[in-house]
Design a binder for these strands. Structure first.
Lengths: 153, 153
DNA sequence: TACATATTATAGCAAGGGCTATATTTTGAA
DNA sequence: TTCAAAATATAGCCCTTGCTATAATATGTA
């Protein structure tokens, strides 16, 4: 808990202290978001597979994400521990309410960002690609600014 | 290398195949970007510290990133292996040309995104925060679209 | 110079995502 | 119904980012 390296060596301007702390918080928060990004990817994809085929199978998730099947099994086990997902051995995977909520929010953000990037003149394929990465790092405020822009045009 | 799970189970429409492959590529690429994001953070911060104080010390990096000092030491060791950074035991850290290039590109992207988000009406502090996450996931094309927008207004 | 303090390095742990190889179970077709 | 093929689970590995505790080195000041 104690962080000895928090001692300030060369005394910075008070503005710099403020900036440092917010930047540190941003780093912390973004490290957290990078973890959650993987959850979003899985849950969004599971929701998509269920919508299209009625269920989400390990093999299909692995294929779509471009990872090996045991990797999926392991991540799903974690998502299960975290209450995002339901699954019985050798059976398909389904979402809990919590998981579905996250998936829906992620899809919503995704769609807005794709639309926004396209409105900015970005090629649809690239917009789709970039949105996949950006969607996990956009705050509610920024998302609203994007939506407001889409409304204005 | 072989990926047995690539066999397609239910034959999809040809459009869906195309979409699946691009989406899979996007996932792969974005997983890669998530790794590189940490490099960007370190290199950008090291460049900043060098610019301000003439050197980048482990303790300062740890403080700014909000992680423990041994974590920094370990990541720096990797960046050194990868030719991004130079350092002697118990001495400060400096950038190689390769590292400096990445830092400069990252800073450039960062600044454009902050300006862009602010132009979209996002609060400066939030813009700064979001840019920290978004900057690692924006393609050249999207960045150019942002710059074009900034020129237009 | 000597020594306390600050800084860096190292050891060792946990957790997570990635992989291959292989065992187990389901499933579908003969 | 039986049995091969497909799908899932498991074991076991690597690498990375985190952490704490502690050892080793640098640094500045008395």
């Amino acid at each position: 808990m104690n962080r000895t390296q928090n001692k300030v060596q060369q005394i910075p301007e008070s503005d710099d202290i403020q900036k440092m702390d917010t930047q540190t918080e941003a780093f912390r928060h973004n490290r957290e978001l990078r973890k959650l990004a993987l959850n979003d990817d899985y849950l969004e994809l599971i929701a998509d597979l269920i919508a299209k085929t009625g269920e989400a199978r390990t093999v299909d998730i692995a294929c779509r994400l471009g990872v090996a099947q045991p990797t999926v099994t392991k991540v799903i086990a974690r998502l299960k521990r975290e209450g995002m997902v339901i699954s019985e051995p050798y059976r398909a995977i389904y979402l809990t309410d919590a998981g579905r909520l996250i998936a829906e929010k992620a899809k919503h953000r995704h769609q807005i960002i794709v639309s926004f990037l396209m409105a900015m003149g970005v090629d649809p394929a690239i917009a789709e690609h970039d949105a996949e990465g950006i969607e996990h790092h956009v705050s509610t405020e920024t998302l609203q600014a994007f939506m407001a822009f889409l409304d204005r045009i």
